[in-house]
Design a protein around this nucleic acid. Sequence first.
RNA 1: GGUUGAGUAGCUCAGCUGGUUAGAGCAUUCGGUUUACAUCCGAAAGGUCACUGGUUCGAACCCAGUCUCAACCACCA
Length: 762
Amino acid sequence: MNKTYDHKTLEKEVYEMWEKIGAFSPEGAKTLREKGGNNLPYSVLMPPPNANAPIHCGHATYSLQDIMIRYKRMQGFDALYLPGTDHAGFETQYVYEKKLKAEGKSRFDFDRDTFYKDVLNFVKENSDTAINQLKLLGMSADWDRNTFMLGQKVIDIVYDTFIKMYNEGLVYREGYMVNYSTFYGTTFSDLETDYKDSVSPLYYVKYAIGATPKKEGLPLYMTVATVRPETIYADVAIAVNPNDKRYKDFVGKKVINPLTNEEIPVIEDEYVDIEFGTGCLKITPGHDFNDYKIGKKHGLSVISLINLDGRMNEFAGEVAGLFPSAARKKVVEILQEKGAIEKINDKYENRVLVDYKEGNVIEPMILPNWFINMDKLLDPVISAIEKNEVKFNLPEWKRDTLRWIKEKKPWPISRQTVFGIRIPAWYSISENPDLQVTFVDKSGVYRSGNLKQMLGTNNGKDYSLDEIKSGLQKVIPSKDAKYLIQKDSPGDDFLQETDTFDTWFSSGQWPLTTTKYPDSSDFKKYYPTDFLDSGYDIMFFWIARMIMFGLYLTGEIPFKNVYFHGMVTGKDGRKMSKSKNNGVNPVEMIEKYGADALRMGLIVGGNTEAKFSPFDEDKVRGFRNFANKIWNVSRFINQKIEDDHLNIPDEMSDSDLQKEDKELLSKLKSLIESVTKDLDRYKFKLAGESIYDFIWNTLANDYLESIKSRSDVSAMFTLRRSFLSAIKLLHPFMPFVTEAVWKEISKPKSESKYIIISKWPI
RNA sequence: GGUUGAGUAGCUCAGCUGGUUAGAGCAUUCGGUUUACAUCCGAAAGGUCACUGGUUCGAACCCAGUCUCAACCACCA
């Protein structure tokens, strides 16, 4: 054995050895174990990393999952760690589009089938990146069972679920206010938007009091402050706060829209802030989230002013055809001519809704959207959580999850991205004369318009249905378009919905798709799974929905225990980011100190249970030293046994042991008990810490030093037994060095050849 | 604005259900070591457990209030 532990060579050797002997699959482990397994299933799902991106420090927390799997495997369970990778819909498409941009192209140059295939190939080329890096970390996942989120089996399951939901009346389609980016041509989820500080002019616009009889002495107009005067065309009311005495007499009267000259009512609503601006709020349900809510509450109509291409439409009168920024300028001129602008505050600071990628402006717009009615679906979830059928590692997670679920918000599931699972809805061309389409014609030119007209025969501009179908980018059906829901095309007269499912709609079915629901042997044996570890940031999007889908489809919860780990931050306690220069690349850490050290640094050095876990390289270095310590203890044992020509028996009776020997063995016994107990209740840090303390201080510094002068068998029996047990306890935390040492060290014949399938000490 | 969490050694954090003298790693200082390991060993120094009050035989821990920081959600017409 070398004088120091060489993690670079040995980690690679050890991992290849594990793969070669098939230790990661429950079946393989069973064979290796020969006898003594308990045949009980234990399963952990790996949260799928993005297929196309390298791992980051957060992924190093997957070690927690690996700890549970290795622990249970050693206890004799048929332990299955099920891996997979996510297609990550929009994220992936975005990365690919960036690449296209560098080549001077964009997605508008391709029909959707070609584009989809290109992205898919791009993902396939890069899909091993994350997996190979997780292997470096030592994950003992059964890679042969790897599931890719866009595989055919996954799509089949997702379609079956959607169709079942549709047949049971849980799916509907309606207008919905979405974050629409005219720049990307898609909606963004609330998650994917941001606010950007900006300075915009705030216009004070006068609305004249209408023809309805007015009380003596009242002013002739109401003034409204707005940053978006171009949306005045879509105003349907003016709202004031019911407690605002200034406007008490106006409520119920009419004012005149200064652009359309139409009469709109003055209503009252608690939402209006008396202090802000003039205390009068224009209500534009078509283009503002709050106005939409207020409009709905008061039964007001909704007017949409902006088309999907970002231009103002025919309702926008004089500014139709312009983009909103240009329209705003022109509208201001018009209003000024009419004398309807009271004043302009040029230095008004507000925040503008933008996408989180490039910071382009987001338009709140009403679009037809597919929805899942969550009302009934969530009841069983609430009851399962309340009855602790699904347990959380901290009480606040249970409380937070329940709080969110109980809101029972409908779930909008359609996205306008290409890279995803296409919604299996079919629009009849003959029955929906108002279908709009965008497509690339055979000369490669982008076209859009009414499908019926494009197919018609006029001025040589018509296209064949085949040409449109093969170049299709997007179908835009009206709000009340007729459709069929089924897996395959109902016939030539139909176009498939081009919207795709929200990624969470498929990843929400992860426990089912990975176990190959409904009739595979894995599903029967390993569902429900046992332990699910995740970042708390996706508690609602992912965890709650997995429970929902699991209960809906199988009647059973998908996992029994949920462990939320904190966010790994820089040493300064702040989110890792390039701009703060506090980022850490896990792969570099592995090269420098070894995966074992990284795992320990994160789990024992930090605290995964806290909301934040700062990453400290000094700690990782400390655990690298610990790996070396272990290596050298085993060298000492081997050397001393050899030098003293000792024949160590497998068992010794208490009467043959000295007092200090028995003391050490009794400390070992309580260590085994506490570590087992701590792992059973997911106290990873405590467990790891006590093993560390035992090996370094109790075993090496105290006991080992004290027996150096002894040459009797009982001392070495005690030392070796304690050490072998201790590194077994340590194996789930530091799999590589313990396996490497296990191979080298002299051990009783009764012990198995590999520590990975050895018996957990009791 | 709402919700939640945090504040313990110079730094990063533990302290498991209220129980002796509050712990660890790193950093610092002093000393040792031709050793299983310098990726080592021994020792020292370092704390008003944010603050104020309360409950208790007993509080870092429970309760109330105050201050500071952070995160999440909402939002600025």
